[in-house]
């Protein structure tokens, strides 16, 4: 990984040349990313509550971490975040695979192109606006969600007013927004299957299931792992949609980890505790990132 640079006869650059090109970006990320993180580390060791600033901000050792780790709400929100992931991920994978297979099927070129292009729209839609839209769609009195279930004779339902409904509503919006992500990844996997092999297999077997299992599956697996890791990182980050749609409520029914830390930090103003929580989240995230990078960027050198 960090072997001495192999000297090439044609290299034409000095030892420090790369440094000059890299320095601006590295310095910027160090100052904007690392310095505040160290600041947070210091803050997490202090009692740092802005609403009680008259007490000062004394160092209290690891007390914030002890408090966070023994705080049932912190574990509950982490658990709820995991539950959210387990609810949306299978749906996004299943629907995404179905859509990718539909789009990969030959024929109907124009319609396929139209459907494929439309997939980009949810991915680019401002998350905060998705949340606002969710509030309109799932409104108890005039939301289209109730209009839709009304077609089947189901009585109107106060989606955002009760725990299960609100949780379902944020899941549905997430599935709408991120299924296209899975679909596009699967689709690019499917398009990697060499044409001759796929043609031969199609002649050989009429069964689409056999084609999928024996020919296409190996090409889908790398993308599948990428999806799992990236989506889990995204769910740990998920804030905008939930914040605009439910503010974590009703009660704490939709309070995912990022929403909870934001509340502790910026609505309760207990920055010491919130910093400790954020750093614990950072540790989880770094582990995820390392796993991801181990899997996908090994080929770089």
């Amino acid at each position: 990984m960090s072997a001495a640079p192999p000297r090439r006869s044609y290299s034409g650059y000095g030892r420090f040349t790369p440094l000059w090109f890299l320095a601006p970006a590295v310095l910027a990320l160090l100052v904007i990313g690392i310095y505040p993180t160290l600041f947070a580390l210091v803050t997490s060791l202090r009692q740092y509550n802005l609403t009680r600033s008259r007490d000062g901000f004394p160092f209290i050792g690891l007390a914030n971490y002890q408090q966070v780790l023994s705080d049932p709400t912190f574990w509950e929100t982490l658990g709820r975040t995991a539950k959210f992931f387990l609810c949306v991920m299978p749906a996004e994978i299943g629907l995404g695979l179905g859509i990718a297979l539909l789009l990969h099927q030959p024929g109907l070129g124009a319609l396929r192109a139209l459907a494929r292009v439309s997939l980009v729209i949810p991915l680019a839609t401002t998350y905060a606006v998705v949340g606002l839209l969710g509030r309109l769609i799932f409104n108890r009195d005039f939301g289209i969600a109730n209009g839709f279930i009304g077609l089947f004779g189901v009585p109107a339902f106060d989606w955002l007013g009760n725990s299960a409904g609100a949780f379902a509503a944020i899941c549905i919006m997430d599935v709408w927004q991120w299924t296209p992500f899975c679909a596009l990844i699967f689709l690019s996997g499917l398009s990697m299957v060499p044409v001759e092999i796929e043609e031969a297999a199609r002649l050989e077997t009429g069964s689409k299931a056999a084609l999928l299992r024996n020919v296409q599956l190996p090409y889908l697996l790398p993308g599948f792992t990428a999806m799992l890791i990236l989506r889990s990182a995204d769910v740990l980050k998920l804030f905008d949609v939930v914040f605009t749609m439910t503010r974590g409520g009703p009660g704490a029914a939709t309070e995912l980890i990022s929403v909870y830390i934001q509340r502790v930090g910026f609505r309760v103003f207990d920055l010491g505790t919130a910093s400790a929580q954020a750093l614990l989240l950072l540790v989880i995230t770094i582990i995820l990132a390392r796993v991801y990078i181990r899997f996908f960027y090994r080929e770089i050198e």
Binding site: T43, Q262, A278, Y297
Partner: peptide
């Protein structure tokens, strides 16, 4: 390279708190 890429994974809330203070 890993370090650059790993910034993609960091939750905004992690940086938002300290950057607010700074």
């Amino acid at each position: 390279w890993f370090w650059f890429i790993s910034n993609r994974f960091i939750s905004p809330i992690v940086l938002a708190l300290p950057i607010y203070l700074v």
